[in-house]
Design a protein around this nucleic acid. Sequence first.
DNA 1: ACTATGGATCTTTTT
DNA 2: GATCCATAGT
Length: 706
Amino acid sequence: MNDSDILRNLNEQQKAACKIIEGPLLILAGAGSGKTRTITYRIAYLIAHDISPENILAVTFTNKAAEEMKERVYKIVGPVANKITMGTFHSICSRILRKHAELIGYTKNFVIYDEKDALNVIKKIIKEMDLPVESFAPKKIRKIISKYKREFVKPNMVAGGYNPNTLKIATVYDKYVKFLLRNNAMDFDDLIGKTVELMSKYPEIKEFYNEKFRFILVDEYQDTNRMQFELIKLLGDKYKNVCVVGDDDQSIYSFRGADIENILSFDKIFANTKVIKLEKNYRSTKNILKAASNVIKNNMGRKGKTLYTDWKEGEKIELIDGYSSMEEANLVMDKIKSLIARGTRAGDIAILYRINALSRVFEVAAQKYRIPYVIVGGTRFFERAEVKDILAYLKTIVNPRDNVSLSRIINTPPRGIGKKSLELLELEAAMKGVSLLEMLENLESIDLPSRTKEAFRKFYKIYSDIKRESEGKGVKEIIEVVLDKTAYIEKMYNTTSPEDMSKIENIDELLNSAEEYDSLTETPTLEEYLNQISLFTDIDAWKEKGDRINMMTVHSAKGLEFDTVFIVGAVDGLFPHINNIDSDSKIEEERRLFYVAMTRAKEKLFVSYSHTRDFRGSFMPSVVSRFIKEIPEELLVEKRKPHVKTINELPAENVSNKLAIHPVFGKIRILKTVGEGEGKRAYIALENGEKKWVLVKYARFKFPEE
DNA sequence: ACTATGGATCTTTTT
DNA sequence: GATCCATAGT
């Protein structure tokens, strides 16, 4: 394979990006500009130029993206592709850390705590310290700690300032860090942060990886945070062959610390950076691209790119105007039904929303219309309670120091070990400075009521039986041992309740995942399996092009494309989200998110909204998203309808005896209204003759033909 | 020790 | 409308 074989598939800018082999390179790649293609061919080009695949590191945003890239490179260069290191920051760091864990006080079997585990630890600490939950909300503290970690602020470096709570938070932080270390556990931030610390502290390790990864590629660079940047800096320190690919317009992870500065100041850290812009879009029609560009141009402080396409004009963008969110969902499904009838494949359609909560109403509608669907994301599979229970058994086998997992399973299924007993055990363990499991091994050394002791003994027997019988077995078999020894399914669930049935199905699904792992891995180990799944996301598992429509958040849809896209729930407060409308920078991120959503569409884009929406059970009035208003009217199928009038916008005398449509009761007649503001009520007559008083605040009436 | 129940509280997005 | 938590009853 020679250069021209590789390069003939690329446009001029893409070619240029391949040819710069050495030195720092920043590729600004617009949406749909063939970014993945460019990276893939660049890797092939490197290999064609005698660069050893072992010396190439490619960092992607998801595991799935890494796999796809590997496959694509494989198609060009063959089996040597398997020698390239590819993965997410988290998976690569986890691999590195397992090799050197002892140097930082861990063992190579450390476990990774997910958000829930981390939150539980913090809750525990807050309770222990007897802090008022009002000013120490665990979730908020968790966020603050995560931020400290990302910025390399250690507990003893937290500045007290004027807020007396800050020091207490620093104490929680300190206890949290120590807890994790004692439990041989890391959270997501640790994976990156500790790798950075490892390399800063041990020059010989850094040197090793500098030599190993002489050529570095980072995809989705706009969504890296400071820690990740530090890591790239360290890894690329010796050879400076660092190629990053990103699009400032698609930066949508600032809540996770992603810092656009990483793009803007890349060339300050890596001197003589070459910059290439990919501005030709191969994905969307002219109309979609034009609409998206008109939205994103309202953001200030962009690097500035002008996307263009040779593609057809295409269809205009269609707005879908529902009254309630239920009606909105039904109208969307109506549309989808007719699209499918006209030959569109269900798998080529996506419904994108701002928040997961919205999936529910669309799921119900899809079922009603008998449209096959798949929901990607939401509650992660591996975070479901029944799955976590089983995994906790596995984690305890691998890492006996993991007290979080042990306290989860010690009485699951119930075996007579209650809160009090567990507390006693924890107290003893803390005093002796040993793990819970070590405590269980030495039960004789402590003074306990004999019944409690017996219960502990029984549990320890189950645990050691599992451990013994797991020796030399595959992961699936080990899970079967756990299920067998604990009688988990029989004791926890009954086969008549539908909820329990779905839990049993989830456990089956877990067995399937283990079986798949066992069969696809050369030397399967429990350790590796646990590591893999703790860094696994739903999007990684998502099978594309199934014959079902796809539903997911806009965040999950990053990097994907679909023929037909529905952006749903496009109302102010949802998209942009209510939490992000109080500052320009937050609104700009919401706008980028909307832009990402729009640019997922290849052929046809729909945007839907409703005039009321469900909020914690009751109704909330809503207003069309400001982003819809930024789409030029000539790109829309129909002109935007004037916003419907609500009862509060009309004088009382205009309302009486008027026909309206109510979100629940349908066609109604308003007879009179009483009161003003919050307490304003309306007396209405339903079609069936029934009469009712309703609160105007919740019942949003729509008046026809206003 | 366990289960059922009601109350409070919350939802942004994710590795 | 879901989930988490404290409490009361078994």
